[in-house]
Amino acid sequence: MAMASVAPSLGEATKMPDWKPPILRSPAAALLAPGVIFVTLLLLGPLAILFRYSFNRFVPGELMVSALTLENYIKFFADPYYQDVLWTTLRISALSSGICLILGFPVAYFMVRLASSRLKAMMIVALVLPLMMGNAVRTAAWMVILGERGLAASIVSLFGFNGRLDIMYTEKAVVIGLVSVLLPFMILTLQSVLEGIDRSLEDAAGSLGADHVRILWRVLLPLALPGILAGVLLCFTLSMNAYATPVLIGGPKFHAMAPEVYQQVQRAMNWPFGAALAFILMITTLVLTVGATALAQRHYRRWAD
């Protein structure tokens, strides 16, 4: 339907490619309307409602009472339990995105310098396939490996240890799971940025006598900085919001933000507090992301001078 109503003007635009119509008179409006209305109605509107509810009051018997109070936010920052949940989430996110960078950079560099484009395409498939397998299945796989009688424990027992690894349900295990889930994101992000760096720069530095470490440090890393930042922030954001890995690998005693949001909204039916949790999670992530970007930009300028 949208197609038909817009059809006549497509030709007009073809004849006048630089014509800039006001959005509502533009044929673009009809093409965009279904998508924009749908997303606004189903996601952005509900988000606004969620934000408003975070200032409401929760009364156990009556569920929610309309109010304009900060008590949900105050409760969060006054309660050591929730402070700990936030710290744990921040810690595992920082750790796993850092490890992803260290492990991912050499792989991305290796891919970019691969002579065979067929091999490169195969590596991309090997990265995207696990990425799209779903966190439930990937986490299940790590449970099989790290579990009490899992693969890791039996390999360890081959070397004479008693076969008890006790790594499942620890923060370490959660970080391992997150790193494995997020690494493809990091590698693909870095790869696309490294792809754009002219190889002759390396050759030039090499012919001037710089060894590989020096080239890496003085030429590649500074040029790849935007990609590094993008990759780290992507991994950081995704682990801040991770659900399956902390719930299943972390176990019932491990508490991270995303599972806590689910717990409050769906299980405890404490919407105001759950809403506050959701926005604390989003705003914390946003502030750190924006802060890191600003910091990196300032650093970048100094490095460039």
């Binding site: 996601l43 509900p46 988000l47 409602i49 919001n241 995303a258 949001v261 909204v265 919407w271 959701a278």
Partner: peptide, 14 residues
Amino acid sequence: VVPGIVGGAAMYIF
């Protein structure tokens, strides 16, 4: 961009 869990919570309440 909106985290799945936050979007899910918002839709559920809506």
